[in-house]
Write a protein that binds this DNA or RNA. Structure first.
Lengths: 149, 149
DNA sequence: CTCTAGTTTATAATCGTTATAAACAGTTTA
DNA sequence: TAAACTGTTTATAACGATTATAAACTAGAG
């Protein structure tokens, strides 16, 4: 399944004229397989064994390329650095205020919100963003003091 | 009406043991009256006539104090700097992808989303965040090239 | 009015991200 | 295969928002 995703993603890139370099392959693969929401720096550190000479700029450059190709979404929460999420199908995130863990969940479209907003404000609506915040079961049940992902 | 808001906010601060300095008064007043969603730097520049010696750190410090007191919400979008929103009553934001303008709109609670998310993920839900993105009428109708607010 | 803890100021430091220019590599052309 | 072109990576510096620090100051309690 994730192999299919990777192949599809590479095809998407190729067909929009983007070269497939080993670094790009690796970053994409990491994003798809990690099933997490890594920061640019996490990706960089995860791949530095395989690419000892790769620079952070390469990670940022390629994340931008992927974002512009519609493969990756950039998540900006309150904390200092952005997180990057490989776009599979529509899902939302719930984030633990305590340890920072991010869990995906699905919810049938919020199209009506977009419609109302468009009607009230006169905007042409393109997309929306929604997150839920709370405390994960590990943190609320006791002493989970680690800052996860 | 906004006078009431200001007075209430000052009382909230006092009752949680926060000193009311002239700078704090001015920042709060600016946030309430501006009806916009300024960055820390915008607040700083707006008040530098009145407080020529005020430093940016003061703005940041006090925005943090206000946030911790529940008076102000910090909005982190994709762009480099945070925006700050005086909390009146629940509303959402629609943001122009073109010029960055932020318009408020109201929408009856998304409590069911919180409930579903809580049920599916096991989190104790505390809050949620939602924004709509699109193009404002000024930008979609023609040549609004300015980067507003 | 005095005292003190909290606040402001000025400045430097931090850190995520972006810009730059040189070295490099994949692809096309011959 | 070789030369040339173009996009990519690397290394490094620059940038800008935010935070830390320490000294000077002041709101508010008594």
């Amino acid at each position: 399944m994730s192999e299919t995703q990777l192949r599809d993603a590479l095809n998407t890139l190729k067909s929009s004229g983007v070269r497939i370099t080993p670094q790009r392959h690796a970053i994409l693969e990491y994003l798809i397989h990690s099933m997490s929401h890594p920061t640019a720096d996490e990706i960089y550190r995860a791949l530095e064994k395989t690419f000892p000479n790769m620079s952070v700029a390469t990670v940022y450059n390629n994340l931008r390329v992927f974002r512009e190709a519609g493969l990756v979404k950039e998540l900006t929460y309150g904390d200092s650095s952005s997180r990057f999420d490989f776009i599979t199908h529509d899902h939302y995130h719930i984030i633990c205020n305590d340890c920072g863990k991010i869990v995906d969940f699905h919810y049938p479209g919020l199209d009506e919100v977009e419609q109302l907003a468009s009607h009230v404000t006169g905007f042409e609506v393109e997309s929306h963003r929604m997150e839920v915040y709370g405390t994960c079961s590990a943190c609320s049940s006791g002493g989970n003091r680690a800052k996860a992902q």
